[in-house]
Each structure stands twice: as structure tokens, then as C-alpha cells.
């Protein structure tokens, strides 16, 4: 492959990256269209509208569990044992859900007004996938930017910008706790976490404000 993956085989490393990524992608796109696809209910009965994006996400957990089964089989094949650090997995998944919710709330509200939102989101997400360590490990980015300073004096800032994407931290942490038997790399998690904690309340407030005209516009 030409990609340095350390002592972890490339297929399982990529699969371990895809697992949180697909969960995030599915939750976000399902969440964004959740309000419009329940138009019949919204027009006729009231209950807190945030139920829609949240349930959209919860149903995706079923798919996640299936993926975990496949990952377990692969780990068995490659004779890898989960370590005590695997206990971090629920935390990582919960964090993924929070990130997806941040996008869902905002996107779902926008989507009521501009239906193009649910069309545009897959394109944006697939672009984001290239900006996340799915097909290559984060360690590669770290090595290029921090150790080799490949982008000159911009390198450190560029790495922070890269890790501002919460998925960078999530995918890397997931691989570390599941496959590598290491604790999460908080340095990579931290910028994305800050961004998420800023976006989620804003996104939720926007959703609650927009909720008032859902039934009129939908």
C-alpha cells in the first residue's frame, strides 16, 4: 500500500476507521432529513421536535452493533486481543453521537426550508472523509506535519486545523483503544472537542428557534 500502518494490518486498521466514520455519516444524514421525512406527524401533533434527530441516531446504533460483530471477527482472524483500554469505546461512540447531533440539529432545521440540504450533505461528508484519517492513519499526518515540519512554519497550525475536525480525534482514538491497546491521544481530540462544544449548543438553540415555524413551512 505504501502507507505506514505500524504493526497493524491495513485492512483492519481501515475497517476500524470506517466503523465510527460510517456511524457518524449515517447518523448525520439521517438526522438531517429526519424532520422533513416526518412531516405528517409534525403538521398534526406537537411534541418536542428534537426527538426526530435523536431517534434517527439511536436507530443507527443497530447498524453499529453489526459492524462491531464484523470487527470482532476480523480481530479474531488477525489474532488481536482487546485490551483494558477498550473500555474507552462507549465514550468515543458517545462523543461521535454528540458531533453528529451538532450537525443534525442545524441541518434538520435548514432542511425544512431548503430541501437541498439533504442533497448537499453527502457531498460535504464525502469531502470530509478525505480530511479524516479513514484511508490513512493519523500518525502519518502527525509524522509529516509535526516531526518533518513538511509545511514549514505553518506545520503546527495546520495540524491543529486538521484535528479541529472532531472525526480525526474520534477515528484515531477508536483505532488506539481497540487495536493498539493505547489510551486515546488527547492532543488530537482536544481541538475537535472544543469546536463541538461550541457548535452543539448553537446548533440546538437554532433548532429550537426554528422549531416554531416547522409546521408552517414544511
Amino acid at each position: 500500500m505504501g502507507i505506514d500502518t505500524g504493526n497493524i494490518p491495513y485492512p483492519i486498521l481501515t475497517f476500524a476507521a470506517l466503523l465510527p466514520w460510517v456511524f457518524f455519516q449515517e447518523s448525520a444524514s439521517e438526522g438531517v432529513s429526519s424532520v422533513t421525512s416526518n412531516a405528517a406527524l409534525i403538521k398534526k401533533i406537537y411534541f418536542p421536535r428534537e426527538v426526530f434527530p435523536i431517534t434517527a441516531m439511536v436507530t443507527k446504533i443497530v447498524e453499529l452493533v453489526i459492524s462491531f460483530g464484523i470487527l470482532a471477527a476480523m480481530m479474531l482472524y488477525y489474532k488481536m486481543m482487546p485490551t483494558v483500554y477498550s473500555l474507552w469505546v462507549p465514550v468515543v461512540i458517545l462523543y461521535t453521537m454528540i458531533v453528529a447531533l451538532g450537525i443534525s440539529f442545524f441541518g434538520a432545521a435548514i432542511n425544512v426550508y431548503y430541501r437541498d440540504m439533504s442533497q448537499a450533505l453527502p457531498v460535504v461528508l464525502s469531502l470530509l472523509m478525505y480530511g479524516s484519517p479513514v484511508m490513512y492513519p493519523l500518525s502519518l499526518v502527525h509524522k509529516k506535519l509535526i516531526e518533518e515540519q513538511a509545511a514549514g512554519h505553518w506545520s503546527n497550525d495546520l495540524y491543529t486545523l486538521y484535528t479541529l475536525n472532531p472525526l480525526a480525534g474520534i477515528i484515531d482514538s477508536f483505532q488506539r483503544v481497540m487495536l493498539k491497546g493505547l489510551p486515546p491521544d488527547f492532543e488530537a481530540l482536544y481541538p475537535g472537542l472544543v469546536l463541538t462544544l461550541v457548535i452543539l449548543p448553537l446548533s440546538y438553540l437554532y433548532f429550537k428557534r426554528a422549531e416554531n415555524w416547522f409546521a408552517d413551512v414544511i
Binding site: A40, L41, I42, K43, K44, I45, Y46, N212, W213, A215, D216
Partner: peptide, 29 residues
């Protein structure tokens, strides 16, 4: 039924509402 929000003024409803608005209200097809 709290489905729409007023532009001006207020609506206060104490108690639960069973709305039968339009045909098949609140029924998920």
C-alpha cells in the same frame, strides 16, 4: 394544539390536547 406558533399574542392551554386535525391526524402511515 401547539403545532403552530403565533406571530403575535399568546395561547395558553392547561392540560393535554388530543388533536384530530385533518384526516388521519397524528397517524403515522
Amino acid at each position: 394544539a401547539n403545532i403552530s406558533k403565533p406571530t403575535k399574542g399568546s395561547v395558553k392551554v392547561l392540560g393535554s390536547v388530543a388533536p384530530l386535525i385533518e384526516v388521519g391526524a397524528g397517524v403515522n402511515p
